[in-house]
């Protein structure tokens, strides 16, 4: 039941022994009944630590997702690049070569240009997604609740959308995805509860 030297609500300095903060009226000393309720006070402190841990885990999860998304985009780039390079070589070899129908070669060249633009956009989208997650990781340091909530919404939607388009995508890394979602849900829950504790001056 030690009176702290700073008011937990407004931060003004409080001389030891005063029961209420002179500046904002916050009750600094707990009531006698509350002082006897040691179990609840210990439980409260324990909960606070749990929430802090879960928020930290959630932040790490967001970073992991950002890294995975970035790695994915790099992988797509390299795989697609090698396929495109192969097609490019075949087209170049066929050009001017009388063995091949030049009209078809030009058609193939147009298809190649379209494909390479498509690949660029695909890689760009994946990089954009990775940057979004990275941004959310930074934001989570300052505002854990909106950031983890946004990350959860983003992640679930992207997974559901890619599964609806190609159901095979859903099964790839399913366990990891479930774990990520679980960590994010716990982080959102804890971020809100921790914020509420701070409002109570805990």
């Amino acid at each position: 039941m030690n009176a702290p030297s700073k008011c937990p609500k407004c931060g003004t300095a409080v001389p030891v022994g005063e029961k209420f903060c002179s500046s904002c009226g916050f009750q600094i000393q707990v009531s006698a009944a509350d002082a006897r309720d040691i179990g609840a006070r210990i439980g409260l402190k324990h909960e606070k630590q749990t929430h802090q841990q879960r928020i930290r885990s959630g932040r790490t999860t967001i970073l992991v997702v950002a890294i995975l998304a970035f790695i994915g985009s790099v992988a797509v780039y390299f795989i697609a690049s090698s396929e495109l390079a192969k097609a490019r070589r075949e087209i170049d070899a066929a050009r001017g070569n009388d063995q091949f129908d030049q009209e078809k070669v030009e058609e193939a060249a147009v298809e190649y240009r379209k494909s390479s633009r498509l690949v660029a956009i695909l890689v760009g989208i994946n990089v954009l997604l990775a940057l979004c997650y990275l941004g959310l990781w930074f934001w989570a340091k300052v505002k854990p609740l909106p950031a983890t909530l946004a990350a959860l919404i983003l992640f679930i939607t992207v997974q559901v959308a890619s599964a609806a388009i190609d159901p095979k995508e859903l099964v790839r890394g399913l366990i990891l995805k479930v774990i990520i979602i679980a960590f994010l849900i716990k982080a959102v829950d804890s971020a809100r509860k921790y914020q509420r504790m701070q409002e109570h001056g805990v």
Partner: peptide
Amino acid sequence: PPPRLSARQI
């Protein structure tokens, strides 16, 4: 401000 809640109430 409103009266401070007990730990249990919080």
